[in-house]
Design a protein around this nucleic acid. Sequence first.
DNA 1: CCAAGCACCTGACGGC
DNA 2: TGCCGTCAGGTGCTTG
Length: 271
Amino acid sequence: MPELPEVEVIARGLHASAVGRTVESVGHADLTRLSESAETLLPKLPGRTILRIYRRAKVLLVEMSGDLVLAFHLKMTGRVVHGPKREPKRHDRLFLLLDDGSLLSFADMRKFGYVRSFTSKTLLEWDFLRNCGPEPLEVPAVDMAQRLRKRKAAVKSVLLNQAVIVGVGNIYADEALFRAGIHPETKAHLLGHSRAVRLFQELQTVLRQAIAENGSSIRDYVNAAGDAGAFQNSFNVYGKKGERCRVCSHTLEAVKVAGRTSTFCPKCQRK
DNA sequence: CCAAGCACCTGACGGC
DNA sequence: TGCCGTCAGGTGCTTG
């Protein structure tokens, strides 16, 4: 489900509504295949106060008192929602009951996602984050262009590679490539400097716009309050194979790059 | 080190 | 209606 904009929107929403609340109890837990076992994770939580909720790459981080950080990776279908207490449903994975009677819930239909706990020290040592590249909204487009052009793979797969730049997934890779007029199969190292810079300028624009519009909802994504985003209404190419290009009216096509469907306009996007 | 391909799950949708 | 194949906002592991 969530790429950078969606996780960012969730983090901001949770930060605004849940900071200062203390965990009273774990109301429900289905930790099957959840990376950290129930015996080690659950007893750590009651009594801790939520201090800060933020995002790094596509990971949602919940900083709690007593030097504990919960890391949620939502993968394709994970949700973290803060709202009124309710009964567990089929795909709910973890319920944290808070001291104002509200509920912080994690659900994940496909079970790809996970929760792990860290101290501030072990979080820094976590291989996943250590292997992550820079944040696209914190680094100049010129610097990202230089990183990209060191790779020989298709530009689309380089955009998806979290070791190069974090936060970009299939939606925003396709949308940024369209805006920059670049064919997804173009070899990254063959892109000229100016086209690579343009690509990251467009990427930054599309990520900021998506955050402002509350993220993109295809089927599963909802924000911290359980509401859908609106940016899917602004897509130019993602999921639009066979439709007309908004710019030139040519029929949009799709190819597989790095195993992912990549939709593009063959007239507007050149190798 | 880099790149490619499949595995991990469940559900929705289209074709027959 | 129902069965079957395909596809889905991501990453991890294996192989070359």
